[in-house]
């Protein structure tokens, strides 16, 4: 019995961790490369979730199909926001530190804007739909099909992203820029376009995570901020600027969150903060840092 419970917690934690990893990688791109600590990251998750919800409830479009529809739209939105807002801020800031400061404030304004547009369009009620709610039996442990599906897709998206980073030319350019933007620029990378694409990609990851979240949890226009915070913590856990570290950070956070949730449901967010603050104090370069 103890063994089953443990397995249950671990698998549940991996499912949650897979989602967090997607979210964290998205922010990792935005902060690690574009240097925007985007507090409104969670709002793009919320947008992805609501797009999926609306497409499913109004037009009967399968949530998995929504991945392909809402993903690119949010990607474009992210790219556009970087082009109009953050690129301008970056050019007018006298130093990178100044830009990091003002961009966190600008993203806070963005959070307000997106959240309130969502509140005006969808209202403040909690929403949800049922999709693949049936269960699967795994050696005594029972899981909802939609959770397993979400986990599967989180892995697929994560792997696809990993190969994109590791193998493609553009992915390599992104990693180079994460290390050192100036050098990447010297190597002939069109830096502003690339930062815009990274920001867009970050938003895309958020939207995909949002689609998956909407299959398993209830959603509201106010759901974004906690996810932003989870993403920030995971990114710091993995080391600021280390994109693969963000992936690992998300996974660890999901596992820890699920364990704490079994001990006391209300404590998981507090546990995240505790881990986070201790980590920043003891090892600010992250678990993978030098």
């Amino acid at each position: 019995m103890g063994g089953t419970l443990l397995l249950d917690i671990i698998i549940g934690g991996l499912i949650l961790g897979g989602l967090y990893a997607l979210i964290a990688v998205g922010l990792g791109l935005q902060y690690g490369v574009a240097r925007v600590l985007n507090v409104s990251h969670g709002e793009f998750i919320m947008l992805g979730a609501f797009a999926t919800y609306s497409l499913y409830t109004s037009f009967g479009i399968n949530p998995l199909v929504s991945l392909v529809i809402s993903g690119p739209i949010v990607f474009g939105l992210g790219f556009l926001i970087h082009r109009t807002l953050f690129q301008h801020l970056r050019k007018s800031s006298e130093s990178m530190a100044a830009f990091e400061g003002t961009s966190i404030l600008a993203s806070f304004g963005l959070l307000f804007i997106i959240q309130n547009i969502a509140l005006l369009s969808w209202g403040s009620d909690i929403k949800g739909y049922t999709y693949l709610a049936g269960t699967v039996d795994f050696g005594g442990a029972i899981y909802a099909q939609n959770r397993l599906l979400a986990f599967l897709f989180a892995i697929i998206i994560g792997l696809a992203f990993y190969f994109f980073l590791a193998r493609t030319r553009f992915g390599k350019a992104i990693r180079a820029a994460a290390q050192d933007v100036d050098t990447a620029q010297l190597m002939g990378v069109n830096i502003h376009r690339m930062l815009g694409l990274c920001f867009g990609l970050g938003a895309l990851m958020a939207a995909l995570a949002g689609c998956l979240i909407s299959m398993m949890f209830e959603i509201t226009p106010l759901m974004g901020l906690p996810y932003s915070i989870i993403a920030i913590i995971a990114v710091v856990l993995g080391g600021l600027g280390n994109i693969l570290g963000s992936l690992l950070g998300g996974l660890i956070l999901g596992l820890v969150g699920n364990i704490v949730m079994y001990i006391h449901p209300g404590l998981s967010l507090i546990a995240y903060y505790m881990i986070f603050l201790l980590l920043i104090l003891v090892r600010p370069t992250g678990i993978l840092g030098k």
Binding site: L37, Y273, I280
Partner: peptide
């Protein structure tokens, strides 16, 4: 802590206090 780390730390701390009081 310098720069961004200080900013994130102070933000995290305020949120930790808020959630702890709520809990």
């Amino acid at each position: 802590l310098r720069g961004m780390y200080f900013t994130i730390f102070t933000f995290g701390l305020s949120e930790l206090i808020r959630h702890s009081v709520l809990w």
